[in-house]
Amino acid sequence: MAFRGPKVWLWRWRRNPLRRRADAMEAWVVLGAWLLTFVAGVVAGLVASRTVEHSLARERAEWRPAVALVTEKAPGAAAGHGARPTTERVWTEVRWTGPDGSRHSGQARVAPGSAVGTAITVWNDPQGHLVTRPPTTTQAQLRGAVIGVLLGVSAAAVPLIGGRLLCARLERRRMDRWDEEWARFGPMWGRMTW
């Protein structure tokens, strides 16, 4: 392991007769990679977060609840008077009237054993298709933040990895030059002059 002296900040930008052009170039590559990493991560994260929140806000504005009626008995046993209520849901056929007055039918989740004619609430889009319940504002903000962080970290990894690869290539090139110079001047170390 090579001996390293005390760490000197910004040594690659300081005037020094031992500083090589490759050292200055590597310093600029590292600085550029870190700046691009920060900017790419923040911008991608914020754009993704706002896009997700905007999309979910549009869903909240456009999707409407509707009352649907069960058209066939739901599988399973209905909860009786002595039974505990359960959160389990089963799929069954339901029908509802869309926002434009047209009749629709489809599959929805209901309590086990629901009888024909049982009213349930379903959500539909402007075309009358069944959709899930839209997330609340808080859920949308949380989902937007999580997706923004994940996408921001992913976007930040690209310039960071690119900078590391470029620095590794510069290091390899520097070592190759060192080997060439050593091959040229190494034999001179064996001659002794008195």
Rank of each mutant, 00 (worst) to 15 (best):
119 A>G: 07
127 Q>S: 12
112 P>Q: 05
151 L>Q: 02
177 R>M: 09
78 A>R: 15
77 A>W: 05
90 V>C: 09
171 E>R: 13
146 V>D: 04
104 H>R: 15
102 S>H: 13
184 R>K: 13
142 L>I: 15
168 A>F: 07
133 R>M: 14
141 Q>M: 10
128 G>Q: 07
147 I>F: 08
151 L>P: 00
126 P>V: 06
119 A>N: 11
83 A>Y: 05
186 G>H: 02
107 Q>I: 12
170 L>C: 07
171 E>Y: 09
153 V>N: 04
171 E>G: 08
186 G>W: 03
109 R>L: 14
110 V>L: 09
181 E>P: 01
147 I>N: 03
144 G>D: 02
126 P>M: 10
82 G>E: 14
177 R>T: 06
154 S>I: 00
76 G>T: 09
76 G>S: 08
131 V>H: 01
125 D>Q: 12
97 T>E: 11
77 A>L: 14
120 I>S: 10
130 L>F: 10
161 I>D: 06
143 R>C: 00
176 D>F: 04
109 R>P: 05
81 H>S: 13
170 L>Y: 14
122 V>Y: 06
167 C>D: 10
97 T>W: 04
112 P>F: 03
131 V>I: 12
82 G>F: 14
189 W>K: 02
155 A>L: 08
98 G>I: 00
137 T>G: 06
156 A>D: 02
91 W>M: 07
109 R>Q: 15
120 I>T: 13
91 W>K: 12
83 A>L: 09
120 I>P: 08
142 L>H: 08
158 V>T: 00
184 R>A: 04
151 L>K: 03
94 V>M: 01
150 L>E: 01
90 V>H: 07
96 W>V: 03
161 I>R: 03
147 I>D: 01
90 V>S: 05
135 P>R: 05
158 V>Y: 02
75 P>D: 09
162 G>Y: 05
111 A>N: 12
122 V>F: 07
95 R>A: 13
80 G>T: 13
118 T>L: 07
159 P>C: 04
153 V>D: 02
154 S>T: 14
70 V>A: 08
178 W>M: 05
